[in-house]
Design a protein around this nucleic acid. Structure first.
Lengths: 229, 229
DNA sequence: CCGCATTTGTCCGTATGTATA
DNA sequence: TTATACATACGGACAAATGCG
């Protein structure tokens, strides 16, 4: 029932939000109110709200109320993770596609921020590069901080989403054979190019970084095929 | 209850899918079976399934059954559209971010396919360019056909998703002041560069295309601010 | 074409847990 | 602590849609 069309309970709730100009954080009507407004039973209203919650359009706080959400992109995490894990070849193909999207996004963005990265940000990036050797979250923070100055919230959330999904399925699809030394070197090259305000050099460094990531995936694929034989 | 963790009904259903190695298109257990398997009531099972449906992980057919879905990215359409429409300044800022993501993706991809576009595909692109003047869907088909040879299903779905969301909110946020002549010229430049196997030229043509799109958005923003004054 | 079984959709009533005041 | 409002969960019942004999 939920697909295209304006007559489902779910769509009518979304229309109600837009009509009332409810902004993120604002309280939703309570379930009894929605039952009355939409002429639907509690069960139908609840199911529609659960679907909207899965999309990040509303947020439910236990025993308190339901509120307008921010529709953050990270609601796609379970869907993307599922997509990869059910993909052919144990999802390695889908994982490669995911990394390629990351590469396209980050090589495109790095050129935009290459000349607008402040000195303080550069030193913060330096600190994160050294932290890479011990803390895996430093890598996530590194890629997030890189593009913080671009002023595009959507692309920041996209990059963070893909980073999280990749590292979540990486462990499930097989050990990545981390070579910390190469990883640190790749990240340091990126920072060096930014410090020199060398956009093309930063793009090259980013491409090299992802080339190694894709090599690890290909290696995992070969190991998997070997195990299958 | 639905957030992170492995003890919710929703997460247990996903775990069940993975345990049974159910692939897209395969039938899910029926609601009574899930009630028995998970020890939950029918309402709880139904709400969890509705959330999974919203994520594209399952597909429900009334009176027939529930099946494993493909987790296609287009489930994000309502979420993205909501995100833009509730954004500041009537969503124009968010719309600009969306177009910028499209630009990054397409300028990055066009370089990858610049040398692998067959002659038959080029003539098909030519036909779509002429169709642009009458059929708005030709634009969508054009951008889809451009990258069909890249072999990355994920990025294809991303580009198509962003195209649809943009054109859906474009009408809601204000008339775009279409100038068909310029649009056709921009697309033709792209095809010409591909025919010459000129990757850099194709990127330039793509950037010019999106520069015009962003100009239209800025124009709509100025008109809106003028109306508010 | 019809009727049947299966499955999902909707609804009702009730009880329980939780957060706020 | 108590009271209230809210979300959560359960069980039962009937309606609607689909596929099949």
């Amino acid at each position: 029932m939920s697909r295209r069309g304006g007559d489902t309970v779910q769509d009518r709730i979304v229309a109600l939000i837009h009509e009332r100009r409810l902004e993120p954080g604002a309280p939703m009507p309570t379930e009894p109110q929605l039952m009355d407004l939409l002429g639907a039973s509690r069960n139908s209203v609840r199911e529609a709200i659960r679907a909207l919650q899965a999309l990040g359009i509303v947020e439910i706080r236990h025993g308190y109320g339901t509120f307008i959400g921010h529709a953050s992109l990270d609601v796609l995490s379970p869907s993307l993770e599922f997509r990869i894990r059910t993909g052919a070849q144990g999802g390695i193909r889908a994982l490669h596609d995911l990394v390629e999207v990351r590469e396209i996004l980050e090589t495109g963005l790095i050129a935009k921020v290459a000349t607008t990265t402040s000195a303080s940000r550069l030193s913060a990036l330096d600190a994160l590069v050294t932290a890479l050797q011990t803390d895996p979250e430093a890598d996530r923070a590194f890629h997030a901080l890189l593009y913080e100055s671009c002023g595009n919230e959507l692309v920041l959330q996209l990059i963070d989403l893909f980073w999280r999904v990749y590292h979540q399925v990486e462990s499930a699809v097989g050990a990545p054979a981390e070579r910390t030394h190469d990883i640190v070197a790749n990240h340091r090259r990126i920072v060096d190019a930014l410090r020199a305000q060398d956009a093309a050099g930063a793009q090259d460094a980013m491409r090299r970084h992802f080339r190694d990531v894709k090599e690890r995936i290909a290696h995992a694929q070969a190991a998997q095929e070997g195990a299958a034989a």
